[in-house]
Design a protein around this nucleic acid. Structure first.
Length: 434
RNA sequence: GCCGAGGUGGCCCAGCCUGGCACGGCGCGAGACUGGAAAUCUCGUGAGACUUCGGUCUCACAGGAGUUCAAAUCUCCUCCUCGGCGCCA
């Protein structure tokens, strides 16, 4: 959520920034917010004046009592009696207006960092750098979908029976690999100064709203019936919400958390996309980084989070590229976003594995996450950042493709082997024969 | 789940019975004093609207509803914390 004061005092700055997205609806929203806010302030002034009058009468009653002029009191009370109803009416109107204003305000996207490139969709993203060498195969590499199936690493069909499309029973060696990844990841994260967290995967509406997931992305999340609870699409939600309404100390910054949780997504807008395998599913496990810090440190921290992700993927020796996400692909929350896209040999293309966002004060304003230098100093709004470390099931697909071998087996990445008791995945069929 | 005690500014706390502009301390800021500092003293310390930038006003006592001219204070509902008992993977 943007600062209403900024909009009031510097509407052109906000307008110019929103214009870069080239979406007229946002400019309309801005104009509406300004108009409704004007109304709100008008009502607020009227109401304040009425309250002032009431307070004056109330005080005069007290004074009359003190002066022993009780005979005059009934007249004043009669006058004062008219006011509460008027206040109530104005209050109601003002609250409605405020609700209206805030509802609009919630839909206005964050201000873009100056370095965000313009683009209509992901085609407009700009590659910043590439890392690693794409593996060359002397055979036609299989897709992760085929590998999962041929090695029987997940049972998609039975998952369809119990749960529907886009679910999976992860099995055997792939489960071991997942657990190995978690082990491997936690060591890196600890070393890099993150606290490890397993957060709640159900959160209240205000947390989703504060995180910017609601109302704009309402269709993408699951809600618990009859309760004010949502299944999280990422542990970013509870991890940022964790410090809602708190005042932190600058000395504790950056506050880095690594969350491990299951994530739930409706994938409403993705019909027909990546329907097979475990690449895009309704639930998956993810290790997420989040960080809270001060405004003057957050851009440095943005690089730090991305660097953590890079170190992780480099340790797995996955070729990747770093991409600066363009306006059309950025979403409303991030001010700037880098993606790390991993190489998929079967598709001969890079695909998203990691998103690293600086959300600046967009989430923290709404969630009232503030900080101060030390006790007694004034409070400021913190900045929040988040980054994937690995969405495990998707990460597995990338590993499978890059580590596949001619005989159809898959080598286990070196750094994971100390956590698995095998160095290659050969599948159940072959195992039985042996 | 039951019983009891609580929730007041960044923190600690008074006020609640008996309704009338939220007491005091810590911390922090400004000023005075000083060669400089400590100590001391004075003033200030949250959110919002308006402002001729001097100020003016409103709100804020866990949240909501009610009673009242007037609610931190009285009534009702909800949430949370702590303690005791019960239940439980």
């Amino acid at each position: 959520m943007l600062d209403i004061k900024l909009i009031r005092e510097n509407p052109d700055l906000v307008r110019n920034n929103l214009e870069r997205r080239k979406k007229p609806k946002f400019l309309n929203m801005l104009d509406q917010v300004i108009a409704v806010d004007e109304q709100w302030r008008q009502l607020k002034s009227e109401e304040d004046l009425l309250r002032q009058k009431r307070n004056e009468l109330t005080t005069s009653i007290k004074q009359l009592k003190k002066d022993g002029k009780s005979d005059q009191i009934p007249t004043v009370i009669a006058e004062a009696k008219k006011i509460p109803d008027q206040i109530k009416e104005l209050e109601k109107k003002r609250e409605q207006t405020k609700k209206h204003r805030d509802a609009l305000l919630l839909q206005i996207p964050n201000l873009l960092h100056e370095s965000v490139p313009y683009g209509e969709d992901d085609e407009g993203n700009v590659t910043v750098e590439t890392w690693g060498e794409q593996p060359s195969f002397h055979f036609e590499p299989l897709s992760h979908v085929d590998l999962v199936e041929s090695l029987q690493l997940a049972d998609i069909e039975r998952a369809a029976k119990t749960s529907g499309a886009r679910f999976y029973f992860l099995q055997d060696d792939l489960v071991s690999l997942e657990l190995a990844i978690i082990q491997h990841a936690q060591h890196l994260l600890r070393k890099r100064g993150y606290r490890l967290i397993i957060p709640p995967t159900l959160v209240k509406g205000f947390v989703m709203e504060g995180g910017g997931f609601l109302p704009t992305y309402r269709d993408d999340v699951y809600k618990i019936e009859d309760e004010d609870l949502f299944l999280v699409g990422t542990s970013e939600a509870p991890l940022v919400g964790m410090h809602a309404d708190e005042i932190l100390y600058e000395d504790d910054f950056p506050l880095r958390y690594a969350g491990f949780s299951t994530c739930f997504r409706t994938e409403a807008g993705a019909h027909g996309k990546d329907t097979k395998g475990i690449f895009r599913t309704h639930h998956f496990e993810k290790i997420e980084q989040i960080s809270l810090t001060s405004p003057d440190q957050s851009w440095k921290e943005h690089e730090y989070l991305f660097e953590t992700a890079e170190l992780f993927w480099q340790s797995l020796k996955i070729p990747y590229r770093k991409v600066n996400i363009c306006t059309g692909d950025l979403g409303i929350v991030a001010s700037k976003k880098f993606d790390l896209e991993g190489w998929y040999p079967s598709q001969e293309t890079y695909r998203e594995l990691v998103s690293t966002s600086n959300c600046t004060d967009y989430q923290t304003r709404r969630l009232k996450i503030r900080y101060r230098e030390k006790d007694g100093m004034p409070t400021q709004i913190a900045h929040s950042l988040n980054s994937t470390l690995i969405a495990i099931e998707r990460g597995l697909t990338c590993i499978l493709e890059n580590y596949q071998q001619e005989d159809g087996s898959v080598k286990v990445p070196d750094v994971l082997q100390k956590y698995t008791d095998f160095s290659e995945i050969i599948g159940q069929k072959k195992k039985k024969k042996e």
